[in-house]
Design a protein around this nucleic acid. Structure first.
Lengths: 151, 151
DNA sequence: CAGCAGTTGCAAATCACTTGCATCACATTG
DNA sequence: CAATGTGATGCAAGTGATTTGCAACTGCTG
């Protein structure tokens, strides 16, 4: 799985992440450090299993679940749903709310990050017409990548 | 769970659905009839459990899974993914490809159908720039409905 | 460096969904 | 209108992702 696309925000140093974790009466433990390092090393949406495979010696599978759950609550990682029943996570850079979308190859799971977000204005229109508040959206694109077209 | 929104296509009569089922060496059985009737009676995205609850006496849970799977393959129902790990299905009207989106209340699961689809042109742009083919998308909106704002 | 609150790992549970298999019931044919 | 063969159904058991109970453990603070 490759990933193109650019990151416009500077990555958060591990020390800052450690500090954020130590706040809230939380602990910056070995397993959590391992999970953060794995995510930092892969600017992809990673599954729990992906993370666990990379950190197998430092962290139990269940702990990866718990760590990512915590990091999500702290807005340090963002969860993505590609509709295949497996959650994926990306580490958020400083000042990044993680709002972007992906283009996923349905054949090989190759993932490309899409920079544009078109639907922001639409959210407002939808909120107005429906009376809903705090309107957000989930959007992912699917297709067949150039490599798979050749096969 | 209520549902607003309009349906621009005429619903398919049960007899036509039966005929479509009988083709392909398939059978129009009691359980399948029950599932279709439940779907026809609820122009909502329904979960498997929802359908099973309504048809409990006529159809086993596993059979609901299999019936909806079949109906999906035959393009008689469309599957939606609201990102909560549970598939939802809508019966397709004649000539309807089911391409629309929803606005889902994150508090009470109230669902509103959204008529506009904005991203069709964008799919083409994305396909061009990425080299992907057969680009499709999944898009759902989330927010807090008027009722839940009062609570 | 003692002590406790928060963490971890293991096993087992849950949840949505799928599959194996023996039995059953449409739809066709005589 | 009953025989018949194939596809359908129900039950039990299996998957795969994710969660939880619980006892042992460990950062962190005093």
């Amino acid at each position: 799985m490759r990933c193109r696309g650019h990151h416009h925000h500077k990555p958060r140093p591990l020390s800052e992440l450690a500090a954020r974790l130590r706040g809230d009466a939380k602990k910056f433990t070995g397993p959590r450090k391992a999970v953060l390092e794995v995510l930092a090393a892969h600017p992809h949406p990673m599954t729990i299993k992906d993370v666990h495979t990379e950190a197998r010696n430092e962290c139990n599978l269940v702990t990866v679940y718990r760590a990512l759950h915590l990091l999500e609550e702290m807005n340090l990682v963002k969860r993505f749903d590609f509709g295949d029943g497996v959650a994926r996570f990306e580490l958020l850079a400083e000042g990044d709310d993680g709002h972007h979308h992906h283009l996923i190859c349905t054949e090989c799971a190759n993932v490309i990050q899409i920079e544009e977000c078109f639907t922001e204005a639409l959210e407002k229109g939808i909120a107005l017409r429906s009376g809903f508040k705090a309107v957000t959206h989930k959007l992912e694109f699917f297709g067949i990548c150039p490599d798979c077209q050749k096969r």
